[in-house]
Design a protein around this nucleic acid. Structure first.
Lengths: 334, 334
DNA sequence: AGCTGTTCCGCAATCGATTGTGGAACAGTT
DNA sequence: AACTGTTCCACAATCGATTGCGGAACAGCT
């Protein structure tokens, strides 16, 4: 059966196509009685507007694009959910595009794929590496927003969370509960994030009047610390562990158990991210929640603002949240 | 600056629009010399075809839709990656639509959203619940494929994995290594899956000549077993634990440690899914990997087949894979 | 020369909606 | 009655591509 078009409705209602279009789109130049009749007929005929016809004429697609790394991480999909929800709430579709790593793939995307993409704007979710060529999007007429752009500033509006202040608050929490020898464990993933959290750690020490002890810092750049390294760190007799990622906190917890330390009695532990496994660890991990959904939603709002009002590059910061569980030894206080 | 169209190219090349179109689309009715000239001019002018204009004329969108539950699970995003990769490989875009739970939202999607969706086909990723109204898609002209449709058969083609056979193989692995008192732990998530895996468990016992002992079965329908329940189960002195989900295996592992059992020496443990946390458990968990990426890719292929050739409902089964780590006590054998 | 068959390309219609312009119909005012 | 101002709607163009049909140009053959 052929598609029902506004021409069919027009014929049925005895009016012209433009009148049908205006009636269905809430345009004022249509009599109340006529409008109702048209709406009824449209419903009866099961009319559904053609997205491509409308796009062709209006130039809008009512669709947002999301450029994602091919790499797997729960945080990325969490952000995606935030974006998807907010887009849906605004009646926009979401088109997801995986971006293979490598400059060649980036160049190809910008020059080949992007110009044809039926989207009104683009959200970039960038992996740890430093994309070189993807920055060319800034020289394009495509409105774009970056999420979590740390290492590489792409001259585009971006959304970020309070990595430094969030970690500072968590470490301060340990300090306030009497921990004095708090070790920092970094490593793996994006250096820029580790760096910010490390600074938050230093902020907290300073504020707590605790001198910084380099022996209490484990910074295996760009990779996960080994069990041996953690064991060695434990030899320095810390009473607290401030770990830059929940996943690494999990390894640390295992090392602590293996070495016979009790958590949180002997050593308190905090992590970062509020990963899904944080709540099921033994003991459940106190951590800093990154509001990924909210970051996604904020990116959508910024993008819409950019599309509708053509705002210049800006940025938006979403606050992290301290989630207190058992591993920091102060659960009962809260 | 206005968009470059084939009319611009035509004028520049001194030919007509149809010729430009045919030249750019590899149509045979164009002379080699003319084609090359047109291609060169198109590149020089930075021509990018209009997706909406093409869609309007051809009726195709070169886009696949993915209907996802709003619910978070790493497996869903893994499937999505599989779909995204395969779609990209075939030059198709992917439009992701979150589906809020509830019949009302489903009805609204089918009647309101679906008819206007600019996609050529739809992949349904269904959550545990039993969708009622979403099945109406089957009465639509929209080609669709379901992934992991267990509890609710929606008269649509679907992709599944070998839940029963996969779990049977894993349990048999324990049997072959001398375990005789193997307990089954189910619970949480989709009943249908738990049921299939339970049957795989029974298959393995039968094949191993081990009588089924109801005391060794923990089946807290529709929720996660509590620590107490697991502890009680351990009181029956099992030498193996066959757990229907990695997440629950993790809880079981914690209970085992707390009760002073050694894994795998005293009790061997296997899980199901190969969740991200399986490899970091203590000890690393032997489990059955669900090939989520492959399932996603298979769904894309089936959908394309359905779009292009109009195939009737069928199904495709992707084999699971036994991943042997330390928790089953036979790592050294492999 | 006349006929047949390729090769290559143009004309005009078409997909389904939106929008600028113009005007008919009617009411209200002087 | 003439004029002004609303209200409501139609005509026709337009967005950018694809495609059925037809035909010009040319070669090969008898």
């Amino acid at each position: 059966m052929p598609r029902v078009t506004i021409a069919d409705i027009a014929k049925e209602a005895g009016v012209s196509k433009p009148t049908v279009s205006r009636a269905l789109n809430g345009h004022p130049d249509v009599g109340a009685e006529t409008r109702e009749r048209i709406q009824r007929i449209a419903a009866d005929l099961g009319y559904a507007p053609s997205a491509s016809a409308r796009s062709l004429r209006t130039g809008r697609h009512d669709t947002l694009g999301l450029l994602m790394p091919l790499q797997q991480w729960w945080g990325y999909s969490d952000i995606q959910y935030g974006i998807a929800e907010e887009s849906a709430r605004r009646g926009l579709h979401l088109m997801v595009h995986p971006l293979r790593p490598g400059e060649r793939a980036e160049r190809e995307f910008v020059t080949q794929t992007l110009p044809t993409l039926p989207v009104d704007g683009l959200i970039l979710l960038m992996p740890e590496g430093t994309p070189r060529h993807i920055g060319a999007i800034a020289h394009t007429s495509m409105p774009s927003v970056v999420i979590d752009d740390r290492g590489h500033r792409l001259d585009l509006p971006y959304v970020e969370s309070t990595n430094r202040a969030g970690f500072r608050e968590a470490v301060l929490h340990l300090v306030r509960h009497g921990r004095r020898r708090i070790a920092f464990v970094g490593g793996q993933l994006n250096d820029a994030f580790a760096q910010e959290r490390f600074e938050g750690y230093l902020d907290a020490l300073r504020e707590g009047g605790i001198p910084y002890d380099p022996d209490l810092t484990l910074l295996p750049a760009d990779r996960e610390p080994t069990a041996d390294e953690i064991t060695e760190l434990l030899g320095t007799d810390p009473d607290g562990l401030a770990v830059a990622w929940d996943e690494i906190a999990f390894s640390a917890l295992n090392a602590l158990h293996a070495a016979g330390h009790r958590v949180p009695d002997d050593v308190a532990v905090i992590g970062f991210d509020d990963s899904p496994i944080a709540r099921v660890m033994q003991p459940p991990l106190t951590t800093v929640r990154q509001p990924f959904r909210q970051m996604g939603a904020a990116a959508v709002r910024m993008l819409l603002d950019s599309i509708e009002h053509g705002r210049p590059p800006a940025h938006f910061t979403v606050p992290t949240e301290l989630v207190i569980r058992d591993s920091c030894g102060s659960h009962e206080d809260q």
